[in-house]
Amino acid sequence: MRVAILASGNGTNFEALTKHFQSGDIPGDEVLLFCNHPDAPVMKRAERLGVPHESFTVKECGGKEKYEQRLLKLLKQYKVDIIALAGYLRVVGPTILNEYPDSILNLHPALLPSYPGLNSIQRAFDDYKKGKIKETGVTVHFIDAHLDHGPIIAQKAVPIKADDTEASLESRVHDTEHVLFPAALKKVILERMNKQ
């Protein structure tokens, strides 16, 4: 199984996944890191970790459709079987979705269907302060045409503590992501390999 990781920012989840690939914990090959921001810190992480990395923007492609066509061509060039979205802050359109049905995993910092979209941790923390919830969490799911929607692969709750700040909660959510995402990706790859 050949895996591409798509990211847009800092790349802590990319690094967590890469360490699991490089230690042999996740089977298959991490063949590509793609980032839609050439200057994002994740590009430096890829360089340091020795992962092939490519980057281009929607703007330089002349719009979303051409960007997705170019990205699909890149994924085909690297013979990618599975895509992991690790903080990739773009909605994946039909050009790529249709080519990779049930093969694109997304990581979301909430217990979906709660808090889809942006600022999930902040919104959960605000609801905790209002007495509406006691926990948030992390979800790994296959994506479909709807935002933060699709079959759930794994979820893990993160309790919100009385002395939490938004920053401390965010830190614990990220720690949970770094454990849950590699485990979920490993599970999906092993299931695919067993079917071959």
Rank of each mutant, 00 (worst) to 15 (best):
G150W: 01
I189W: 04
K130M: 12
D148W: 04
F56E: 09
K64V: 10
L111I: 14
K76T: 11
M1H: 09
A84R: 02
K129V: 06
F125H: 03
D102W: 03
N13C: 07
P151H: 11
S114A: 11
G93T: 00
A86V: 11
K156F: 10
R172T: 06
N106V: 10
R192T: 06
K161N: 12
Q196M: 15
L97W: 01
K132Q: 12
F142N: 02
P116D: 07
M1R: 07
P52T: 07
D175W: 03
G63D: 04
N194Y: 10
L107V: 12
V179N: 07
V91S: 02
V42I: 12
I189D: 04
L6E: 00
C35G: 04
L147K: 08
V158C: 07
T165L: 12
K129F: 05
D126E: 15
Q77E: 14
P109V: 05
H149T: 06
G150F: 01
H146T: 10
A7E: 04
H53K: 14
N119W: 11
K73A: 14
V58N: 02
N10F: 13
L180E: 00
A157F: 07
Y115F: 15
P52D: 05
I82R: 06
L147V: 15
A183Y: 01
D144W: 00
P41W: 11
L97C: 00
K134H: 13
R2Q: 08
R192A: 13
Y128M: 12
H141Q: 11
L190I: 15
S8P: 09
E15Y: 05
A157D: 10
I96Y: 01
K129H: 13
D126R: 13
C61T: 11
I153A: 05
G62A: 08
T95K: 01
K64M: 14
E30L: 15
Y78E: 09
K132E: 13
K44Y: 08
I152C: 04
Y128L: 11
E54N: 07
Y78A: 08
G117P: 03
G9C: 11
G28V: 02
L169S: 01
R45F: 09
G24Q: 09
N98I: 02
A40K: 04
V58Y: 03
F125S: 04
E68D: 15
V188W: 00
I160M: 07
K134G: 14
I189F: 06
V42N: 06
I143L: 06
Y115H: 07
D144Y: 00
A4V: 04
L32S: 05
A84W: 05
L107T: 15
A7H: 04
G150H: 03
K59D: 14
I160G: 00
P27A: 02
Y78P: 05
L33G: 03
E65D: 14
I96C: 02
E170R: 07
G62L: 11
E166F: 06
D163Y: 09
A124M: 03
I160A: 04
R172Q: 09
V42L: 09
P27K: 01
M1T: 10
Q122V: 08
I143P: 00
L75N: 05
Q196D: 15
P159C: 06
G28T: 01
P109W: 07
L74V: 10
A183C: 04
K59G: 10
K161H: 14
I26E: 02
P38N: 05
M43Q: 01
A167F: 06
F181Y: 15
I83W: 02
L17C: 05
Q22K: 14
Y128S: 10
V31H: 00
T136Y: 12
